[in-house]
């Protein structure tokens, strides 16, 4: 099982194409959805709940950019109005995940060695569970809802991030500047506060960005399985779940919400990797 530790963690892969326009595009995408979450009425072209049975299941057109659903509701406006809830679930899950990861990761790196060993072993056991499986176990206990999605995805993806946190803290502890501070006779608490924690936490900005994108994907996977927010909502996962019924007749109902999630997740990944690359080059 220890071999897993040698694995480069998914988020730490280097060799990204250093093309500036991808990052610019990603920032644009995120800004667009941030605006949609803050003020959906500015971007929506129709009332997201207005029924129009004469225009049901229309393919994307100039009037209905993303087409319409079975009740004639404009899909583009529904996607825009669902942004707030989808982002909230993604951010919430990433927050839960990161807090847990900080607690477990710093315990595994800083606690007394027996406790640290035990915590580390515990994290490794949790890491053995596939994220979605873990999330499904929690949904089985708590029943499907937005809160469950946040908790299930947050807890499910925490072990991976806990390993990253532990690695960061250990790397900071072994660094030259900490050695120098120890040699200068600085007290342990001061070294932790001034050197180890800031240097270990800074890379987590990148991790958090990657985590938000991943969380939205996991949460929408749960929703796709019918275990998310109930369909009247226009949360993106709920749109996917509702669109499944019409996959042969009106594929845009599932393809477009899926594409929106993919685009946002890729944008988050691109930004996260860019931050990571900047931090790493800054360290050198």
């Amino acid at each position: 099982m220890t071999t897993i530790q040698d694995t480069p963690a998914p988020t730490r892969t280097r060799r990204l194409p250093r093309v500036r326009w991808t990052v610019a595009l990603a920032v644009g995408v995120v800004a667009f959805f941030a605006l949609a979450a803050a003020a959906p009425q500015l971007l929506a072209t129709h009332d997201p709940t207005a029924l129009d049975l004469t225009a049901s299941l229309r393919a994307p057109s100039l009037d209905h950019w993303f087409g319409t659903d079975e009740s004639g509701r404009d899909l583009y406006s529904r996607v825009i109005h669902g942004t707030r809830e989808s982002l909230a679930i993604g951010l919430g899950a990433a927050g839960v995940s990161l807090v847990l990861a900080l607690v477990l990761g710093s315990a595994a790196a800083l606690a007394h060695r027996y406790l640290a060993g035990a915590v580390n072993r515990f994290v490794e056991i949790l890491f053995a569970f596939p994220t979605l499986l873990f999330a499904l176990l929690l949904v089985a206990i708590l029943g499907p809802s937005a809160t469950t999605q946040i908790l299930a995805v947050g807890i499910g993806s925490a072990p991976g991030y806990a390993r990253i946190v532990r690695g960061q803290i250990l790397a900071a502890r072994r660094s030259g500047y900490v050695e120098a501070a120890v040699a200068l006779g600085h007290p342990r608490g001061l070294i932790l506060r001034q050197h180890v924690i800031p240097n270990a936490v800074r890379p987590l900005v990148a991790v958090f960005t990657l985590c938000v994108g991943q969380s939205i994907v996991w949460a929408s996977s749960l929703a796709f399985l019918g275990l998310g927010v109930a369909p009247p909502s226009s949360e993106w996962g709920a749109l996917l779940d509702a669109g499944r019924t019409y996959v042969t007749h009106a594929p845009w109902l599932i393809v477009i919400p899926g594409l929106v999630i993919v685009v946002l997740a890729l944008a988050a990944t691109a930004i996260g990797k860019d931050i990571q690359a900047r931090l790493e080059s800054g360290d050198e």
């Binding site: 194409p17 929408s220 393809v255 899926g258 594409l259 999630i261 890729l266 990797k273």
Partner: peptide
């Protein structure tokens, strides 16, 4: 650049979406 871009994009694709696209 093309090689690693393709890897980044495919690695991030959710199974439900890729599956639907392949099926369609």
């Amino acid at each position: 650049a093309l090689g690693s871009l393709a890897e980044t994009v495919t690695a991030g694709l959710p199974h439900y979406w890729l599956g639907i696209i392949l099926m369609l």
